[in-house]
Design a protein around this nucleic acid. Structure first.
Lengths: 247, 247
DNA sequence: TGCTCTCCTTGACGCAGATCAACCTCAAGA
DNA sequence: TCTTGAGGTTGATCTGCGTCAAGGAGAGCA
């Protein structure tokens, strides 16, 4: 039973997200300073990284695994407001409490920095602030894209949108390309998908079945997805010919 | 018939958004540099500032009036993804085409900077980049707040949420406070409200009537709103006891 | 005084997706 | 081998909001 986060230590040179995370622009000397205040934390699938409202004395990057950002109303309705993949940044410099619940959806490893030293470093290291601005702007674009999905798309379009985003991100991370069939594992339960899309899990399940029946996707088990024709999926998502910007 | 934007010139010292906009942190000498590349543009209510996909060779701040950011699907469904009030920033450094349609909802005055010089200035003036990061993080929070509204709230709650946000922003801008009744003018048509909330204009109209009938708001004409009890409105919005962070 | 246009309201009806409920699958544990 | 529980599927029914349609209110104009 491993309920407490692990800590460990690694070299930034080997880091799989070295060129995409908040430290991407840093020079060797800057990296060294970051290295001094960094520490790793691991979480098991299902664990909560932090609760909304809790004191948050660190910020950090996702190294591997997937985490979610969710908001909850008093009566229990929940909406996911962010999906954190490797290289994504967690936390807000200048704010000392978490705004959202952060949960590990899969096993998760994060590279964390104590907040105060990180803020001081940011003030003296433009490369960090620059990169953070860029990443935040990307996230804002993604959030706005998602507002269109939540506000105006049908259940079927929502599912197709989510699948195409995951497929695309997966392809980017793994540097795959080409026009062959796309294969990936869903990193989310049906319930988490529902929370992301503003639907119920029953509707998610039904629409997944419908897309399977219509040949838009092939399902092996509940999570393993093959997309034989990505353009078809994009059509189903309601946005053809849209390059689709992603973080 | 005034279809072309006006240009004019003013002094930053008199600027009503001097302490809230992207230039808020600038020192006198930095302000001077900004002053050299700034120009004002005016738009009439209903005019389009820029279309998504168009070349965008400027960025800028809203000085007075209200603008909207909207996304449109091929079949015409539209979703508003941002509401720009005085001091809000328009445009994205590093990107040369507009991502969204920007429209003037009321008569609008903007303080614009040519994009290239602004980007150069940003690289050498940390105060600008810092403030922009802060503003972008605030906008990201607002967007995520809105995702909860779009994904999980009922039509009545959506309307109440929008009203409470406008009421609060208005109170902030005009430095009003206290616990008396709140009075303001809706800056949006029913259709714009619908586009913001992911509803139809008929549903917006019905829910406005329902809130009026239930005494949550008092309407004079179609736009002039009085909120006798702000806590009641917050309850209707589904978020009591929530401080509600705003840009 | 009436025309026209924009914005808004209200009613009748239908449907997409929520709700309620039953059951399936699979893996872990005893 | 059976139990237990998490995650998922599917069916029946209900309902909130969309759709379609008619008409009101007010401003600008002739």
């Amino acid at each position: 039973m491993l309920n407490q986060p692990l800590t460990m230590s690694r070299d930034c040179g080997d880091c799989p997200i070295r060129h995409r995370a908040v430290c991407a622009r840093c020079e060797a000397d800057e990296l060294e300073k970051l290295d001094k205040i960094k520490f790793y934390r691991s979480f098991q699938a299902g664990q909560t990284v932090i609760w909304a409202g809790d004191q948050m004395d660190f910020v950090g990057s996702v190294i591997s695994g997937i985490a979610t950002l969710t908001q909850t109303m008093e009566d229990g309705r929940t909406q996911m407001v962010g999906l954190l993949l490797p290289s994504d940044f967690v936390g807000r410099p200048g704010r000392d409490t978490a705004s959202y619940d952060v949960q590990a959806t899969s096993d998760l490893v994060m590279c964390c920095f104590r907040r105060k030293p990180f803020e001081e470093l940011m003030a003296t290291t433009p490369h960090i602030a620059q990169r953070l601005l860029e990443m935040t702007l990307d996230e804002l674009d993604a959030a706005r894209e998602w507002m269109l999905v939540l506000g105006r798309k049908t259940a079927r379009e929502k599912i197709a949108s989510l699948l195409s985003i995951i497929a695309r991100r997966d392809a980017t991370l793994n540097m795959r390309s080409g026009t062959g069939p796309i294969v990936f594992d869903l990193p989310l339960t049906r319930e988490a998908m529902a929370d992301y899309l503003g639907l119920t899990l029953e509707t998610v399940s039904r629409q997944m079945s419908a897309l399977r029946k219509d040949g838009v996707i092939v399902l092996e088990g509940k999570r393993h997805v093959t997309v034989p024709d990505f353009d078809r999926l994009m059509e189903e998502a309601g946005d053809d010919s849209d390059g689709g910007m992603l973080a």
